[in-house]
Amino acid sequence: MTFRTLDDAKDLAGKTALVRVDFNVPMEDGKVTDDTRLRVAVPTINRLRDAGAKVALLAHFDRPKGQRVPSMSLKPVVEALENVLGAPVRFAEDCVGPDSVEAIRDLDAGGVVLLENVRFHAAEEANDPVFAQKLADLGDLYVNDAFSAAHRAHASTEGVARHLPAYAGESMRRELEALDAALGNPVKPVIGIVGGAKVSTKLDLLKNLVGKLDRLAIGGGMANTFLFAQGVDIGGSLAERDMAETARDILAEAEAKGCEILLPIDVVVATEVKPGAETRTVLAREEIGDDEKILDAGPLTVEKLIKAMTLSKTLIWNGPLGVFEVPPFDVATVKAARAAGDFAKAGILTAVAGGGDTVAAMHHAGVTGDLTFVSTAGGAFLEWMEGKPLPGVEALKA
């Protein structure tokens, strides 16, 4: 898809850019404990500042449900944002009305103001057109730099873009380009890895992927459901046994569409999930005790998966292969992730990962900086993988 970026925005000096950012950051005792999301916004903010624009930042924090909740104010973010920007940041006590108008008016060219939590207004999540117009009245152009909120049709993510020239910020652009390279227009062959606990939460995802991928590896608790659907005795493993017929339908659809499904050949089992638990590695179709649970993929499975990566040009990854949070059940995820990182660094594989526990798993494996792109967008990343249009992205189409 083609979308408007800041390369298309001309003559910004003296104009006000309304920039939607994701500042829903971790906080403790009124202090930001992780400034990653603030840092992600810096390239867009600085590009606009360097062009002589005033920058008015729109963001949400937590779920105030349309009420003014003091503990959910964005005011404590100002100090942390000043630190990462190396520049002063004003704060407006509201995102519309006199407070916001005055704060923006008093800015010098290149100045930055953070507007109060847009979700203090119920009209935000309702995508109320009157509220969207009030937001638009504050600026001359709109920049969306919050892909993580792009799956929401809210006033600050979609409505305001109907009233102003709308562009993707630098972070949004990187995200869209990476996802397009992974799933929109990838270099084939393409392999996907989908893990996690439940098939039921990823039905749309699986159905979309089997029509787009050359190979799809299924791991985690989801793989147990597929093994069970094939008549494998999975003992006391986590599985959605009532989804067996659905799993068989997905396997049949994959076969019809030429997508090879990779399920575990061997598995690591234990009677309890705890660090350092006693484990057994068995072939998936061998006897698993009634009191044993499948908690990770085995070495043969990982070897086959890595070989499949070498036969591919593009990888898209969502979800761990086992209970990676509890060693020793992190082995398969770590080995596969490090192989993907090595292939990406060598330039032989475009590797994009994201959604849910995936970011934590990649951090755990130490490969976040090695993969081509790691998305922190969560729900928006999943909906993109499911093939759903994202309102905040649709609004930026050229």
Rank of each mutant, 00 (worst) to 15 (best):
A398K: 11
L176G: 02
D7C: 07
K15N: 08
P98L: 08
E292P: 04
G86R: 10
V190G: 06
T225D: 10
V78P: 00
D242P: 01
K293D: 05
V40Y: 01
N46R: 14
P391G: 07
L48M: 05
V25Q: 11
D145Y: 09
L38H: 05
L262T: 11
A87N: 13
L295F: 15
L396E: 04
S171M: 13
L12G: 03
A398G: 12
D145A: 13
V89K: 02
G14L: 07
V19W: 00
D214Q: 12
L238T: 13
K212I: 07
G355E: 08
T310R: 14
A122N: 07
E79S: 09
D290E: 15
L48W: 03
V393A: 10
T314W: 02
A149W: 02
P70I: 11
P64G: 06
D145P: 07
A365D: 09
Y142D: 03
V267Y: 00
A146I: 09
T2R: 13
A308W: 09
N127L: 13
D62C: 12
K65G: 01
K202T: 00
V190P: 00
S375K: 05
L107R: 06
T372A: 05
C95Y: 00
D296R: 06
V69S: 01
V359H: 01
A239L: 13
T201N: 08
A380E: 00
E245S: 15
T157G: 02
S73F: 02
E175N: 00
G235D: 13
I294Y: 04
S148I: 10
S73Y: 00
V367R: 00
V326L: 13
H154R: 08
E170F: 04
K75R: 15
K207Y: 10
S148G: 14
A87L: 12
R20F: 09
V331F: 01
L38W: 03
I234F: 06
V267M: 11
D99I: 04
V269H: 03
T44H: 04
D140C: 12
A122L: 10
P327Q: 08
G159Q: 03
A80S: 15
A56G: 06
A340E: 08
N318S: 08
